[in-house]
């Protein structure tokens, strides 16, 4: 597993809340939302699924989008992805 980069105070353009939704909704929703974003815009994806820590950076690498990093709260993660592809 790659080392996950932790970030703070990122200002997203769009937020999608999939907390408590089951795997692999994080990848399906990510794909769906990135299709709706303009190039350069940032998506914030909220999920409690820890497998996303591995899956989302990998997905970004595979699809050529920029994985900005993760922020953590008590109950869930906030993933930040910039659409670059």
């Amino acid at each position: 597993m790659k080392k996950v980069k932790f970030v703070e105070h990122i200002r997203p353009d769009v937020t999608t809340d999939i907390v408590y939704m089951m795997c692999p909704m994080h990848l399906l929703k990510l794909d769906e939302m990135m299709g709706k974003l303009q190039k350069g815009q940032i998506l914030e994806l909220l999920t409690d699924y820890d497998g996303a820590l591995e899956d989302i950076p990998e997905w970004c690498e595979k699809t050529g989008n920029e994985f900005i990093g993760v922020d953590e709260t008590d109950d869930y993660f906030k993933f930040y992805i910039r659409k670059t592809a």
Partner: peptide, 20 residues
């Protein structure tokens, strides 16, 4: 919309990942 819920039945992505 916007209301979080923990699934009763865990499994796959049926019903938007909320009811397997």
């Amino acid at each position: 919309e916007g209301q979080r819920i923990i699934p009763l039945i865990f499994g796959g992505i049926q019903e938007g990942g909320r009811r397997a």
